[in-house]
Simulated scan of single mutants.
Amino acid sequence: MSGDAGTAGTLGFGHQRTAEADGAHLSMAGEMSYGDYLALDQVLSAQHPLSDHHDEPLFIIQHQTSELWMKLILHELRGARAAIARDELGRAEKMMARVARIFVQLIQAWDVLATLTPAEYMEFRDVLGKSSGFQSHQYRAVEFILGNKNAAMLRPHEHRPAIHADLQTLLKEPSLYDVALELLKRRGLAPDEAHLGRDLTQPYRQHASVEEAWLAVYRDVGTYWDLYQLAEKLVDFEDAFRKWRFGHVTTVARIIGYRRGTGGTSGVAYLEAMLKVRLFPELWDIRTRI
């Protein structure tokens, strides 16, 4: 559109006629506008700094946009989990690929937050009180749907009954990886039944029978092409997730060092411990055996 308008500007009377014609389309009275569709009045008025410090809006917007991306991540992961359960692997892989690209956006966002220096952050850190990203219910939901479950992590959300109930449901439901293992069973690559029937509210623990099942897929790609593709999408996703976590650790260390987090966690030490968590361990271990 801008190119057409620029061309019309070189044609004298053509510019006037184009402007008049375009003007007929500029009024949005009675129509749904861009701002209406995106609810921009609500979105752009949702930033409420509690200090007069110039850099607090950066901190707020960084975390609000991350929460918006996590909302989409959860939407896609729920969809992928359901698609795998229906044997619609192509659809699930598309959703998982999208989530991996979302994490690229989230990883790059750390570079923006890293422009906040320790001295600047300390100017408004006190206004955060005990609020912390550790308390993000959407992040916890992402962890649960990926199998990194911990019932103790429900406690920060007990004061929000609807959120607490949603997290309780996710805690009890099969994870994305669990439905992938059930798929292996349906394809005759049966992981151990006791392992498949374990307590789903507990964190996932790797199992030799699962490793053997995935190894069979990787050693006969021609026969199990769709399962192989699914496995690689899972690895691609976890690769991106790990990089996001690493960026989180590095950025927090750069801004606050090793002081305790506002929410009472050990800060960087807690985040570093999370780097050791593997979501789909057998898919990493088989790489030394193929």
Rank of each mutant, 00 (worst) to 15 (best):
R17S: 15
G9D: 12
L271A: 03
S136H: 02
Y34M: 09
L116A: 06
D36L: 00
A83T: 05
L89K: 04
F237M: 05
S266F: 15
H195P: 10
V142G: 05
A141V: 00
R287Y: 00
A213P: 01
A82S: 15
F241L: 01
R278K: 14
E31C: 11
F237G: 01
E211V: 09
A213L: 05
R278E: 09
W284G: 00
V99R: 00
A151W: 03
Q62E: 11
P156V: 02
G23K: 02
S136T: 01
R289V: 03
Q105H: 10
W214H: 05
T7I: 12
M122C: 04
W69Q: 09
Q202A: 12
L116W: 01
G9P: 05
L116G: 07
A180D: 14
W284D: 03
F103Y: 13
A80I: 11
D178S: 09
S131P: 06
P57I: 02
T115V: 08
D192F: 08
I163P: 06
S136A: 01
Y224N: 04
L68H: 08
I256N: 13
I60V: 07
S175D: 07
Y139D: 08
P161E: 02
E120V: 00
Y34Q: 03
H248S: 00
S51P: 11
L279K: 01
A5T: 10
T223M: 12
A190V: 05
A162P: 03
S33P: 03
I60N: 11
D41H: 05
T265V: 10
P174L: 14
H63D: 09
G30V: 10
L106Y: 02
L215F: 05
A213M: 02
L271S: 01
D285I: 02
S132H: 06
R254D: 06
V277F: 08
M28V: 13
H54R: 07
T262P: 05
A208Q: 14
L26I: 14
G147K: 13
H195D: 11
A253T: 11
T65W: 13
V249R: 01
G23S: 08
D36E: 06
A141C: 01
W244Q: 08
S266T: 15
V217E: 04
H137S: 12
T169W: 07
E20N: 12
T169D: 14
E123R: 13
G261C: 09
E193Q: 09
P281H: 00
H53D: 15
